[in-house]
């Protein structure tokens, strides 16, 4: 019977005169390329949007309660505001902000602007030290355009207690780079644990500072790095902690740690969320990492040089 019906199908198809295929394959390739580009943009944008949503959610939860103080801050806790480096001017506060309340949020500088801007607060937690690490002496010396290898080199310097390998560049173009590597370090139980660390330096047109702020951008007063998101997600059943900071020149740095050890996720850490598999990659360490002022679209020249030697498999960048 199958053969009979198949013959019937063939007869039916033979009766219809199909149009020529034309450039079907070429068009499919073109559409596929466009889809691929859109998907990669969505992936990057989605991560940023997730971080933004987390920040807004934390900001809403952290609004002052009826008692007056921030809802989840213990009395006497330091304000979760980015502390400016000594050389930088303190961020301007809106004239309506009560002096006693303290600068708990960074607000749009152009309050009279017609556009709807979002005021982002740093996560309202007292658990993290949000101080921007002081750059080491000589850090302001020569800087060169970023490369994946240079980013890995700086990452290695900032996380000296970890063994880092299997580095690869997930993205590298003029608008940013994303590198991923496997890290080995001591876990909470004293045993060596493995995790995947992904670091992104991505230009973001969603944020701007001061007079550069456009109509559809979120505006910051501060020129310094600002922690905007600590989020926990689950990728294929494995928890991932992502910490994102906006730096003042319109780009963001994010670090995501994919916890590989299921045993390490059973005990929650004091800041909430899963215990990091590796002690040296706890949330505070990630916060300090992404706030480091050396990150940028230009990286220290010594890291560019050292990165070439230590990570020959990564694209070395433009000379």
């Amino acid at each position: 019977m199958t053969q009979d019906l198949r013959a019937l199908f063939e007869r039916e198809l033979a009766a219809h005169d199909p149009p020529p295929l034309g450039s079907l394959v070429g068009d499919a390739v073109r559409d596929g390329r466009r889809l691929r580009r859109r998907r990669s943009l969505l992936t990057t944008g989605g991560a940023a949007a997730g971080a933004l949503a987390a920040v807004v959610a934390v900001a809403v939860i952290g609004l002052p309660g009826p008692g007056g103080g921030p809802a989840d801050l213990p009395a006497g806790a330091p304000s979760p505001v980015l502390s400016a480096p000594p050389s930088a001017a303190p961020p301007a506060l809106p004239p309506t902000a009560p002096p006693s309340a303290g600068p708990t949020c960074l607000v749009p500088p152009r309050s009279t602007a017609p556009q709807a801007t979002v005021t982002l607060c740093p996560p309202a937690r007292a658990d993290y030290d949000l101080a921007v690490p002081d750059p080491p002496p000589g850090a302001a010396a020569k800087r060169l355009p970023f490369t994946p290898a240079a980013a890995m080199s700086l990452l290695q310097r900032l996380l000296p207690g970890l063994k880092i390998g299997d580095a690869r560049a997930l993205r590298y173009d003029r608008a940013g780079l994303v590198v991923e590597s496997v890290v080995l370090g001591e876990g909470p139980g004293g045993r060596y644990e493995k995790a995947t660390l992904r670091l992104g330096i991505v230009a973001s047109d969603r944020v701007a500072t001061g007079s550069a702020c456009g109509d559809d951008q979120t505006c910051y007063v501060a020129e310094d790095a600002t922690l905007v998101g600590v989020s926990d997600t689950v990728e294929r059943g494995v928890p991932v902690r992502t910490v994102t900071a906006f730096h003042g020149k319109g780009w963001e740095v994010s670090a995501a740690v994919r916890v590989e050890s299921p045993a390490a996720t059973t005990a929650p850490d004091p800041a909430g969320g899963p215990e990091p598999a590796i002690v040296a990659l706890g949330t505070q360490e990630l916060v300090t990492l992404v706030l480091d002022p050396r990150w940028g679209l230009e990286l220290p020249a010594e890291d560019v040089v050292r990165g070439r030697e230590q990570f020959p498999g990564l694209p070395p960048g433009k000379d």
């Binding site: 390998g165 690869r168 560049a169 080995l184 498999g313």
Partner: peptide, 8 residues
């Protein structure tokens, strides 16, 4: 994707 060979 290019990767470095070992964790070291």
């Amino acid at each position: 994707m290019t990767t470095t060979p070992d964790v070291s």
